[in-house]
Amino acid sequence: MSLSISLAINGRQHDVALNDPRVTLLDLLRERLDLPGTKKGCDRGQCGACTVLVDGRRINSCLALAASMDGAEITTIEGLAEGDELHPVQAAFIEHDAFQCGYCTPGQIMSAVGLIKEGMAGDDPERVRELMSGNICRCGAYQGITEAVLEAGRKAAENAQPQTGNPDTGKDAA
């Protein structure tokens, strides 16, 4: 029996027939939809390498069943840059040497984008560390990651237009 779902990934609509209901969102992205930028580090929600945005909120895609994503809007690392122009978080990661091997980096960046959107960290490095603590970096680039997230957060705050009614603001991380 196959289950059909329809979801938007990086702005593009996908209709997918799931021949196995056990498939995770992570495996769907990587193995079916040719989007391997999202990484598998532990497959148990313990490392954060698979972080993506679902309807603007960051989640561990290894813990989400693809079948539960019908109608969702998903952003992965592949959908972040505008052509050649890097997303400000990506640019800040280069500037602050926020990674070495680059394997956890897609998850770190998606988590940082989600965090900045949540607006919970402000300009406090300890809050940034706490709210990024679901993302492990074995190369130990936490210093650079924290600086990069702070800088991207500051820039986002400077550029922010007065907004009302953003349903995501103030929500905690998944």
């Binding site: 990587r30 391997p36 690392i77 592949e78 840059a81 890097l86 990661f93 990674f99 680059g102 394997y103």
Partner: peptide, 21 residues
């Protein structure tokens, strides 16, 4: 110097063994 390898890794375009198809 800032790193030459950064760009592809940041965009999710690095190719690790699990990404080979």
């Amino acid at each position: 110097m800032l790193r030459k390898e950064d760009d592809r890794l940041l965009r999710g375009r690095g190719q690790f063994v699990g990404d080979v198809r």
